[in-house]
Design a protein around this nucleic acid. Structure first.
Lengths: 339, 339
DNA sequence: CTGAAAGCGCTTACAG
DNA sequence: CTGAAAGCGCTTACAG
C-alpha cells in the first residue's frame, strides 16, 4: 500500500480511502490511485486489516465426519450461503475424535474466526468449557451438547424415529433390531428414545438385546448387525440410526446370506441420493439438509450482524419418512395386536 | 500479551520468549509468566503473529464439488496430513463454477494462505493467470490445467479407461455408450481418449453418436443416458466417466424399464463404499484416494519447508478396475473379433 | 538473561 | 478533500 501511495504521490490514508470506499476522494486522485494499484498489482493484506479492525470475516466449521454424505450436503449449503454473505469458511473434520475436535476449536479461535458452526463429536466436557470461555458466536448443528448454551439447529430425532418404528410395527414387525449411534451424542440418545417410545405406544416390551450400539460408522455397525443376525431368534427387521451404519448392516445381511427385503427388512436414518436407484431401494428418514444448512448459517449471520438476539435460539426441524422398498410386511404373521 | 507482561511485571518481549520458547528465560520469570498467562487466560493472537512473521500456517483447499464422494475422501486425507503437519485448512467448493472459483482463489490469497491445493473446475484462462501472478505454492489435484505450471498429482485416466473399455470389449460388447464429463477438463478429455484408444486397439470404429457429453453431474448424465437408451440400436453397455453421473445413468435405465446387468451393462469411473452392497454390484475404476491426498499434501509441505524443489513435479497414479457384477457378457453374441 | 524500540500493513480519528 | 500520526498485537534484532 505504501508502494501504491508513493507511486501515486499520495498518502496511504488516501489509498486506504479508495480501496475501501470509506471516505470521499476527488476523482483525479482516485483514478491516479487506481492506476497505480492496477500497475503495481497491489492486493490488500487482509491479515493486517483484520488485526486493525478486529474481524476476519471468516467462520470456522467443524464436522465430525466429512465422509458422511449428510454432513457433506449440509457443509455445502452452509459454505454457499456464508460465501454469499461475504464470509470465508475454514472447515475441519475430526473423525469423531473429541480431542482432535478441541484442538481444532483452539486453532480456529486462535485464528480469530468471527463465528463457529459445529456438529460436535460426542459429549465433551472440554467443549462446553471452551465454548463457555469464548464470546465467539457459535451455532451447533445436528447434535446438541450438554452445558452448551448456544444457538442450534437440530432435527426432531425422537419423533422421526418414532414414526419410522411405528411404520415398521404397522407392517407386522415385532422384533425390530436397532443399530444405535453412540449414546454419547444427543442424536444417539434421542433416536433410541424414539424407538422405545414407539414400542411403548404399542405396548410391546423393549428387549435390551435387540439394540446394539454402533458408533455411526460402517465397521462397528457391521459387527453390531452380525450380533443380531446370528441369533436363532433374529429380528425380522433392522433399523439403522444413520446412513454410514446401514452400509455395514447391508453387508452383514449379504454375508449372512439373507435377502433384503424378502427375508429381512431394513429402514435407515438419512437419505442417500442413490437410495432409489440401487436394489433394494432403501426406506429412509430424510433430513431437510438444505434447511438445516441455511438456517444454521443464518443464525450465525444474525449474531454477527449484531442483531439484538439475546437468548440462544433452538431450531428443531422435522424429518420425513420416505417409503421405498427395503421394508416389507413380515412374511409370516404370528401375532397381531389390536392396534 | 501486554496484560500478561504487566501482571507478571516483565516486558512483552520476555512474554513472547516464553510463549514461543524462542529465547532462554530464567526459570523464575518463566513460571511467573506462565502463571499470569494461566490466570488471565491469555491466548496468543495468531493474526498479529502472522502479520509479523509473514506466514499463516494455513493452506487453502479448493474442490469443484464437495458432494462428490471422491473429492470428499481426498479432502479428508489432505486435511488429516496437513493438520498433523501443523497447518489449518480453509476449504472452498464452487459447484464447478469457474467464476466462483476465481473469487475463492482471490479470497484465499487475500488471507495469505501459505499454499493452495486445487482441483480445478474446468479450463480457465483466469486460473492460469492468477496462479502465474502469485508465488504462493500451489498443487493441482485430479485435474490438470493448460498453462498452469505447478506441482500436481493426477490419475492415469487414459490408461484406466482404456483398461475398463478393453474389459467390456472382451465381454463381447461392441456398442459401448460413453457418458463423458466436461471436455473442458483434463479428466474429461483423457478419459474419453482412453475409450477411443481401446476401440482403436480392437479396430472397432468409433461412433460419434455413442458418446454423450455430461458435466460430471447426475442430472445431465440422466439426460445423456436417455439419449442413448431411447435409440433403436441402443448400446449393450454404458461407461460412465464418474461416480455422480452413474447415478443418473442408473436412473435412466430404471425409468426406461431396463434391467442391469441382465439387459444392459454398466461400468463406472470412481468406486463407492457401498458399491458392493446394493444391487447391481457396480464394476468400477477405483482411484487411490488415500495416496492422492497424501502425496498432494506432501508435495505442498515440501515446497513450504523450503526444500530445494525447482521444477514442477507431476505425480501420476494408477487406477484399478474392480470387477463386480454390473457388466456381463453380451446376451446374444452377434459378431466376434479375432482378438 | 531482560527490556526498549522498531516495524509487519493496515485503518481511523483528527487536523488542516 | 487530504495527510500525519497513532495503534491493532505481535516478533526480533540490538543494547545492556
Amino acid at each position: 500500500m505504501l508502494d501504491v501511495a508513493q507511486s501515486a504521490g499520495v498518502s496511504v490514508a488516501t489509498v486506504s480511502a479508495v480501496v475501501n470506499s470509506s471516505a470521499p476522494v476527488s476523482p483525479e486522485l482516485r483514478s491516479r490511485i487506481e492506476m497505480a494499484i492496477e500497475q503495481i498489482g497491489y492486493k490488500r493484506n487482509t491479515i493486517a486489516r483484520s488485526l486493525k479492525i478486529g474481524t476476519t470475516r471468516t467462520i470456522g466449521l467443524i464436522v465430525a465426519d466429512i465422509t458422511n454424505p449428510f454432513f457433506t450436503d449440509v457443509v455445502s449449503v452452509i459454505q454457499d450461503v456464508l460465501h454469499r454473505a461475504g464470509y470465508a469458511v475454514m472447515l475441519c473434520c475430526n473423525d469423531e475424535d473429541t480431542r482432535l475436535q478441541d484442538e481444532q476449536i483452539d486453532l480456529l479461535l486462535d485464528r480469530m474466526v468471527d463465528g463457529l458452526i459445529i456438529a460436535p463429536a460426542g459429549e465433551d466436557a472440554h467443549l462446553s468449557r471452551i465454548l463457555a470461555s469464548t464470546k465467539t458466536p457459535t451455532v451447533l448443528i445436528d447434535r446438541l451438547c450438554d452445558g452448551v448454551e448456544s444457538d442450534a439447529v437440530v432435527l426432531d430425532n425422537r419423533r422421526a424415529v418414532h414414526d419410522a418404528t411405528a411404520y415398521m410395527l404397522n407392517l407386522g414387525h415385532r422384533r425390530i433390531g436397532y443399530i444405535s449411534g453412540s449414546l454419547a451424542t444427543s442424536t444417539g440418545r434421542e433416536r433410541l428414545a424414539g424407538y422405545r417410545a414407539a414400542l411403548d405406544a404399542e405396548a410391546i416390551v423393549f428387549e435390551e438385546n435387540l439394540v446394539q450400539i454402533g458408533n455411526f460408522r460402517e465397521k462397528d455397525a457391521y459387527k453390531a448387525a452380525m450380533q443380531l443376525l446370528i441369533r436363532a431368534d433374529r429380528p425380522t427387521a433392522i433399523f439403522s440410526a444413520n446412513n454410514l451404519m446401514v452400509i455395514g448392516v447391508m453387508k452383514a445381511i449379504r454375508d449372512i446370506g439373507l435377502r433384503c427385503p424378502e427375508e429381512i427388512s431394513v429402514v435407515s436414518f438419512d437419505d442417500f441420493p442413490w437410495a432409489d436407484v440401487f436394489q433394494p431401494h432403501l426406506t429412509t428418514i430424510a433430513q431437510p439438509v438444505q434447511a438445516i444448512g441455511e438456517q444454521a448459517a443464518q443464525l450465525l449471520i444474525d449474531r454477527l450482524s449484531g442483531k439484538e438476539v439475546e437468548a440462544p435460539r433452538r431450531l428443531m426441524l422435522q424429518g420425513r419418512l420416505i417409503i421405498r422398498d427395503s421394508c416389507r410386511p413380515v412374511p409370516i404373521v404370528t401375532t397381531r395386536t389390536t392396534a
